[in-house]
Simulated scan of single mutants.
Amino acid sequence: MRHGPRRTSTSLVLPVLLCALVALGGPPTVSQGAEGPEASADVARLFEEASTATQRYEAGRKAASVQKAEVRTMERLLVRERRQISVLHDDLGRIARAQYRSGGDIPLTAQMLLAGNPEKLMHGQRAVWQADLALNNAVDKSRRAERRLADGQRRAADAWRSLKERNARLVILKKGIESKLEAARWQLQGQADTSVAAGKCRGAVRLKEPKNSTTRAWLPPVEKYELSAGFDSAGERWSHRHTGQDFAVDIGTPVRAVGAGRVVSVSCGGAFGIEVVVRHPGGYYTQYAHLAAVTVDQGQKLRAGQWVGQSGTTGNSTGPHLHFEVRLTPYLGSGVDPVKWFAERHVKL
């Protein structure tokens, strides 16, 4: 059923895009040549690729922050190196001036012949030698500092360049996958609309699911979402009150069984569009509606977290979302509040 006002999110721009596209004459045209299973598989594959790309982007963004901090530290060290070089240059000038005053380049033998006190001259010469040693050490130290400075400047420039190039590559990769995913989602939704209009379900598609490692008995029907229209809320798109909880997600989002159970029905007509109903131990039933595709058959036994389909916007829906219900019977009108039902099972929506 229709979902109500939702919070602003970059992952939820599709409903707004839908409205804009209606005003412009409908969604983008995509190829209808692929069969349903292929379209569903493309969406599932691209969905995982987009998720991986997003994770890589976030990891790169965090690494970039660390690298930026390292570069700033490096630049502070370079400032200190420049100060040290300046001090060394002053020392070199002072030593050179002292040597010039003490005799400069006059040979030692000539100085001894001219000196009135050779012993005093030798004592002074030792001081000159020490000054020469200090000068040489200062020159070497200055050169090492200058090499460190040049190397640090080069590494800082390389780090900044690497940072910018990596971020640019991640942005391009992410946008490319998201563009392909958007087209694949519309193709999947177009095929779903065709099957609903014909009143003929396309049957279950078999998708490669990620390894299910959950040990939880109960979990939300989608992994990442925002809640929109809630149970028993008013709305112009339903005759009385809203009978379930809506999860705002994009077309093609994997929809999973909230707990272990068995599929009691799969249908694709009416206000709910493509839908699946599952019976759980204890007598409760869950409904997953407005799907773009189903991945299970009637009578199939399910484990918690197993995919039952892919979200869409079939039936009486104004935008992509999952309409989810918890019922006392398989039929409409026996619903209970999903939020409270989940809370009793230690699941917070």
Rank of each mutant, 00 (worst) to 15 (best):
E146H: 14
A192N: 04
P254W: 11
Y284Q: 02
A192T: 12
N212W: 07
E236M: 13
A23E: 15
A34R: 06
Q84R: 10
H123C: 15
N136E: 15
S239V: 08
R237S: 15
N316D: 10
T194C: 14
R7G: 13
P338D: 04
H280R: 09
Q191C: 09
A138S: 06
A134Q: 11
Y57H: 11
E223Q: 14
L46F: 03
D297R: 03
P338S: 12
L149H: 08
A217K: 13
A260P: 14
S102Q: 01
L113T: 02
V128P: 03
L88N: 12
E223Y: 13
A115K: 03
Q310T: 06
D297K: 12
G312L: 00
W186T: 07
S267D: 07
Q55N: 03
V347M: 02
T295Q: 05
R2A: 14
G235D: 01
K211W: 15
L149S: 05
S11E: 10
G315L: 01
L21S: 14
R94L: 09
I85L: 05
S334I: 14
G25K: 05
M74K: 04
L108P: 00
S51Q: 11
Q245Y: 10
L227A: 12
S265W: 00
P15H: 00
A304F: 01
V263H: 01
L12F: 10
A50Q: 09
A50V: 01
M122D: 07
A257W: 09
G312H: 02
Q84S: 00
A53G: 02
